[in-house]
Design a protein around this nucleic acid. Structure first.
Lengths: 357, 357
DNA sequence: CTGAAAGCGCTTACAG
DNA sequence: CTGAAAGCGCTTACAG
């Protein structure tokens, strides 16, 4: 038997016969520079309409696509934005990411995915990612404590925008995009007050989280406006996950077992915490909203499918993603802080909140 | 007042003083080619250990990172993998994506994000994404009907792997990576049979979905092994989302209202459908698992936090992501079909399933 | 306005 | 084994 015949060069040689600008120029009978100018719509190129048409046709017929590497090497930009996320599985972060992706695409940019934890750990990956012209700029999910100084370092080299947190970096200013956290929790609190709750507890994120602090401030201000206070014993700090919500409720329930009064409503620092609380409630003999109302920050697709459906306030996550790309591409003054307030926080009342008994 | 002083070239000129290979070579007192060879660990480079050390030191001291554009232009690869996803908000797809990302990073590759729907709509974006050496290869989430022929077209130009679906493309063979769908649903079905259920219904995905068909086949075979059949009236087709699960249950409930017997357990085509069913059950006067057991394909972080926690079978999503990157980088024979069976499907029994009344 | 020339920063046959 | 030279495919001052 003979060796099997070589297949008709399918992708054996990879990147089969890529068509170059020179091929287009040849086909159109013009020089390479002119082809370049016409294809890039250089206003200085005043070739006859007919010539232009011939070039465009040739490019189209040959299926010409510029070689990105060659182009980037010349113009020192590559149409890539680095998106550094923290937790790929959170539906909250995902909504942000959707906005970033869509707006980037609208500007003919693509997203390159990075992972906060990995970049923090692996110095080489870190440098490769932010250096070497790999990306034109960086969008970093904010709110990760220790990462901040690192971000400041990067921002000196590469246009950088922090999304979803005000810049906490003091010495160096980094552009940041964030929502009106306080207005969000104020809305939730007012909703609960309106239902008749007078003692409200909080399951918040990590104690040192700026975002968490802002959310708590919104609760405090709404309570204060009603002449009420937030009791220290009604606040618990945990992490931003469903398991955190579960742990937070366990902690509170343990306190309540010692007797005395307890809050009739809980505000969850985010909707993952809210999910954890709903999931754990039954185990503590709590029926929601009968025994306890629960409301959370951030509306995601899951909220309405939970049992019971979760009352939330939606913050403009998608729009923040959009805005962060705009800021990045506008190469705006570093250190700008953009509050995204359109749309404003919106309350989504669902069955997890009800008047207290 | 004078104009404000120009800041000390922060990022005004962008990409401040990028250090080039030539700078490293100068600093080490060697030629550029030698520096290149040593830094790339070319085994042919037999400079003295001391010279090598000097080069590496210089690179380190200067913080040298190769210019990716220049490098890609030469070697015709850029360390970028295109990941084309369908629904960024699905926790199922996300788990896949995590595996892809991690394995890509392990091979010093980064991910560029594309969107199926957008690429289908926008011809220019499509060509830009797959052509022009933007990415070295493509990983495409499978199971999107109409996209298949398109994928085949791409695969002829660019190394491509379909993940999460066997290749349905007949004429041209595209490498694909998929789980043992039938084993998964067989496990769920056997679990329900073991609990004593003898009539089991299915809320599956779209009627023309290959994945859905495979999952139904697993159910059929397990039922058949027990001498049971799947009744046509107990099957409903919907979409793969929570809203689909909601609609599917509504459809079944409407049938059941006409009287007669009904299934005592339901298998959801995926866990989003399962979430929808759990969320809608109460509205149909059904208590789960008391009146109806529910089990679903794919285990995600939410499953255990649902009310009640959802019984699922986990398929190796993360590992499929990993494997798809390996296949892509191995540039394996086109048309290979890889069944990822490690780990095998695992049953996660939770409170949404119980013996029938 | 257009074309010939230079050059972006690398890698790699090619001579020595 | 190492260095000088060429060249990857583009864009853009620079002359004409």
């Amino acid at each position: 038997m003979d060796a099997p015949p070589t297949p008709p060069t399918p992708q054996a040689g990879r990147r089969r016969g890529a068509v170059r600008l020179a091929d287009v120029a040849d086909a159109a009978g013009v020089s390479v520079p002119l082809a370049s100018r016409v294809l890039n719509a250089d206003p200085a190129a005043r070739a006859t309409a007919e010539t232009k048409a011939r070039i465009l046709e040739a490019a189209d017929a040959l299926g010409y696509v510029p070689n990105i590497a060659a182009k980037s090497l010349r113009i020192r930009r590559n149409g890539l934005i680095g998106l550094v996320v923290h937790d790929l599985s959170s539906p909250i972060h995902l909504e942000l990411m959707r906005g970033v992706r869509a707006e980037a695409a609208a500007h003919n940019h693509f997203l390159v995915l990075g992972d906060v934890d990995e970049l923090l750990e692996d110095e080489l990956a870190f440098r490769t990612f932010i250096s070497g012209n790999r990306v034109d700029g960086l969008i970093v999910q904010g709110g990760h404590g220790g990462f901040d100084q690192r971000i400041a370092d990067i921002a000196r080299v590469l246009p950088t925008v922090i999304v979803n947190a005000p810049s906490r970096v003091e010495r160096e200013r980094v552009t940041s995009v964030y929502p009106d956290e306080e207005a969000g929790t104020r809305l939730l609190t007012e909703h609960l007050l309106g239902l008749g709750h007078t003692r409200i507890g909080v399951v918040s994120g990590p104690r040192d989280s700026t975002t968490g602090t802002l959310r708590e401030a919104g609760i405090l201000s709404a309570l204060a406006a009603a002449g009420l206070a937030l009791r220290a014993e009604d606040v618990v700090h945990t992490d931003w996950l469903a398991s955190g919500g579960r742990a937070g409720l366990a902690e509170l329930a343990a306190r309540w077992e010692r007797g005395g009064d307890r809050p009739t409503a809980l505000i969850a620092g985010n909707s993952l915490i809210g999910i954890g609380i709903l999931g754990a409630a039954h185990g503590h003999g709590l029926s929601i909203p009968h025994d306890l109302s629960v409301a959370a920050v951030h509306d995601t697709w899951i909220s309405e499918h939970l049992v019971p459906p979760l009352t939330t306030v939606s913050l403009p996550l998608y729009e923040m993603g959009v805005e962060s790309v705009r800021q990045l591409l506008a190469d705006s003054t570093e250190g700008t802080e953009i509050l995204v307030s359109d749309p404003p926080p919106v309350l989504h009342v669902r069955a997890s909140t009800a008047p207290p008994l």
